[in-house]
Computed example of a mutant assay.
Amino acid sequence: MILFFGTRPGKAEMKRLTNVRCPHCNRIGTLTLSRASNFFHLFWIKLFKIYTARLAECSHCKGVFYKNEFTPEMESAMDNWPNMES
């Protein structure tokens, strides 16, 4: 019997932050949050989420901020984002 299993990335989700200031260039409304999850799959069926990567990118200065670099404003915006379903 052959088993096909492994990990695959899920669909990336993005959200524009309109009232949050970029920590690098101090412009308001230029940040975009994104998150993408990796899933364990068996026979190409997602079984459970392994990891979720979260980051924010500024469209003005092109700064990229990872979850550990988020400001309290960015954390609050991420907390208000609805939970991702499988």
Rank of each mutant, 00 (worst) to 15 (best):
M74P: 04
W44G: 01
G63N: 11
C61Q: 08
R27N: 13
N26K: 02
M14Q: 12
T18W: 00
F4V: 09
P82Q: 13
L3M: 14
T71C: 03
K62Y: 05
I50G: 07
A56P: 03
M1H: 11
A12D: 07
P23E: 01
M78I: 05
M78W: 06
T52M: 06
V64Q: 05
M84D: 13
V20S: 10
M84G: 12
N26P: 00
E75Q: 10
E73D: 15
L31C: 01
D79S: 09
M78H: 04
K49D: 02
I28A: 01
R8P: 04
Y51G: 00
S34K: 00
L33K: 00
M1K: 11
F43W: 14
N38A: 00
S86V: 11
Y66C: 04
C61W: 05
L3N: 03
F48Y: 15
K67A: 15
R21K: 07
E85V: 12
G63V: 09
T32D: 03
P82K: 14
R54P: 01
N19K: 14
A77I: 13
S76V: 05
A53T: 15
E69D: 14
R54T: 13
C22S: 06
H41K: 15
A12T: 15
N80K: 09
L17N: 04
A53G: 06
F39C: 02
S37N: 01
I45C: 09
F48H: 15
